[in-house]
């Protein structure tokens, strides 16, 4: 069962070792009643498969899309989601909180 954020990091490593291109998303800041605490992880591969959660389901779709771009480009990026966002109807947090999510690629260049 994938229940803890430790399992997500183990999954990220396992996926990368299988040769999949992988990105890791981490909740780095929350305001108000955010659904998942700081430090929560989501692991994503280049095909958009993912495990874990950064918002309990509200914005994962958008994070996965961005993560696929991060995998392709290599540069980490920081995403912000909240009801104040103009796209709130599409990707926003119904709870009224705001979150910042850091998305980075897992680089395998230095590993044999």
């Amino acid at each position: 069962m994938i229940s803890t954020d430790t399992d997500i990091l183990a999954t990220a490593e396992a996926w990368a070792r299988e040769g999949r291109s992988v990105a890791l998303a981490t909740v780095i800041e929350t305001w108000g009643s955010a659904p998942r605490p700081v430090g929560s992880h989501l692991v994503i591969d280049a095909d958009g498969h993912f495990q874990g959660s950064v918002s309990g389901g509200c914005v994962e779709g958008a994070v996965v899309e961005e993560a696929v771009e991060v995998i392709a480009q290599g540069q980490p990026r920081t995403l912000e989601f909240g009801v104040a966002d103009e796209t709130a109807w599409k990707v926003g947090l119904s709870c009224g909180g705001r979150i910042r999510v850091y998305v980075e690629r897992i680089s395998t260049e230095t590993v044999n």
Partner: peptide, 24 residues
């Protein structure tokens, strides 16, 4: 994050040793 760093993170955790990853 380097896969090597991620591997150390997971190894340390499995050995019940605390670690902190610092990201700029």
């Amino acid at each position: 994050m380097d896969l090597a760093t991620l591997a150390v993170l997971n190894t340390e955790r499995a050995a019940r040793r605390a670690t902190i990853l610092v990201t700029d």
